[in-house]
Design a protein around this nucleic acid. Sequence first.
DNA 1: ATTGACACGTTGTCCGACAATGCGTCAGAA
DNA 2: TTCTGACGCATTGTCGGACAACGTGTCAAT
Lengths: 244, 244
Amino acid sequence: MKKKVNFEKLAHQPAYRVVSEKIRNAIVSGEIKTGELLPTEITLAEQFGVTRSTIREAIRLLEHGGILGRADRKRLVVTLPPTDTVGRSVSSALLMHQVTYEELWQVAMGLEPLASKLACTAATRKDKQLLAANLVHTCEVMDDHDALLDAEIEFHNLLAEATHNSALLLARAPLNELFYPVAWGAVIQALSPGERILVAHQHIYGAICENNPDKAEEWMKKHMLDFRRGIEMGNLGFDQPVKG
Amino acid sequence: MKKKVNFEKLAHQPAYRVVSEKIRNAIVSGEIKTGELLPTEITLAEQFGVTRSTIREAIRLLEHGGILGRADRKRLVVTLPPTDTVGRSVSSALLMHQVTYEELWQVAMGLEPLASKLACTAATRKDKQLLAANLVHTCEVMDDHDALLDAEIEFHNLLAEATHNSALLLARAPLNELFYPVAWGAVIQALSPGERILVAHQHIYGAICENNPDKAEEWMKKHMLDFRRGIEMGNLGFDQPVKG
DNA sequence: ATTGACACGTTGTCCGACAATGCGTCAGAA
DNA sequence: TTCTGACGCATTGTCGGACAACGTGTCAAT
C-alpha cells in the first residue's frame, strides 16, 4: 500500500478578501451596529496595515451585497440589506442558470400559499389596511393592463410582508423581480382576467380578516392554478427560460 | 398655484459602478458566455478609458455575486454563480435581519415538502443512487452526532438537487447554511433521534422510487414536524434570532 | 521524458497625488 | 437675528506608476 502524503492545498487568500471577511464578520456579529458609520478608508487602512486601494477593493466586495450603503454619497454606513437589493443578485444568478417559468412557478406554488396562511396569524391592522387599499385600487384600474399588473404584484408583495417573515420575503424576492412582471403581464395582456384576479384576492383578504388560514391557503392555491391555466391557454412558453 | 420646477435629482454614479454594470450586462445578456475568460485588467482599463484601479473595484463588485470566478488563481472567468455563493449573501442579509429559527422553519415547511414532491417526477437514476448511498452512510454513522448531522443535511440537499429546479435550490440555500447546521445539530445533540431521522428518510426515498409524490410530501411534512417537536422538547429557543 | 533556467504576462499590493464634494465654522450683509 | 457666502477640512473617487508574486510557455541540458 502506497503511503500518500496528501498535503492540504494551501489557500492563499488575497488581502482584500481577508479584509472583506473581517469587516463582514464585524458587521453580522453586531460589533458594528446597523446605522453606524464605517471608519474612513484611511483609518481602516492603518488598522489593517494595508493600503487604501486594498481597503477599497474589500469594501466593494461588501457593497454589492447591500450590507453597506451610502449615508450621503460620502461616508459608508452599515445598513440592513433591503430585500430587493439581495433579490437582484439572486435574480441575475437565476437568469444565468436559464431558469424556466415552470421552475419559478413551482417555487411560487410552494411559497405563496404559505404566505397566505402565515399572514392570517401575523398580519397587523396596518397590513390589512394596506391590503384593503390595494383591493380598492385594483377595482379602479381593472381595465388598464399595466396598472392592473402593478396592483396584482403589489398584492402578493403586501401579503408576503404581512407575514413579517424576512426569510420568506427574501426567498420569494426573485418571484417579484423575474416571474410576475413577465409571466403575469403576458396573461393579463392575453386574457384580461381582471375579475378572476380580483375575486381571488378578495377571498384571500377575507380569509385573513376572518383569521382562517386554511381558506387563505386554498384560495391562493386556486389563484396560482388559475394563473397557470392562463399561461397554458395563452400558449406562452411555460418551459422557456426567463429572459431578463 | 405655485409652479414647481421639481428637477429630477441627478444621480452621479461613480465610474466603478458604471463599469461594473456594463460588464454585468455583457455577462447576463450572454455577450460573454459562461466559461469565457474576462479580458485582462489592463485591456479593460484601456477599453473603458479608466485606470486599472477603477477596473479592479468594478470587478470586486461582481466577484462577490459569484458571476465571476477564478480560473487558476490568475485570470478571471465568467462562471455560473454556485448556489452556495449566492446563498451566502442571502444568509448574511438574514442574519442582520435577526431572522428567527421559527421564521426559517416556516420557510422550510413550505419548501422541503415541495422539494420531495417534485423530486418524485424529476429525479434521475443518478439522483436516486446518490440518495441511496446517503441512506447507507446514515446507517453507518448513526452514533456519531457530527457525521449524522452532515448526512442529514446532505440528504435534504440531494433531494433538492434531484428536483433540478435552480430556483428552488437558491430559495432554500439559507436553510442549508443557517438553519439546519445549528437547529438540527441541537436536536441531534439533545435527543439522539437517529432512528427517527433514518426512518423518515427511508420513507421519502421509497416514495420517490415508487413515484408517489403525495407520499413523499407527507413524509417530509412529518419529518419536519418531528424536527420541530424535537426543538420544542429540547427547549432550544425557537423564537430566538439565529446566531451566525 | 524529465528537469532546470529564464523571460513574459497577469494579478496583488503599494505609494503618492489631485479633483470633487459634503460639512462645519465664521465673518459679513439684509 | 437670520441668511448668505467664503474658507478650510475631511473624505471619497480617480489617476498614474511601480514592484513583487506567481502561473505559463519555451528551450536547452540531462
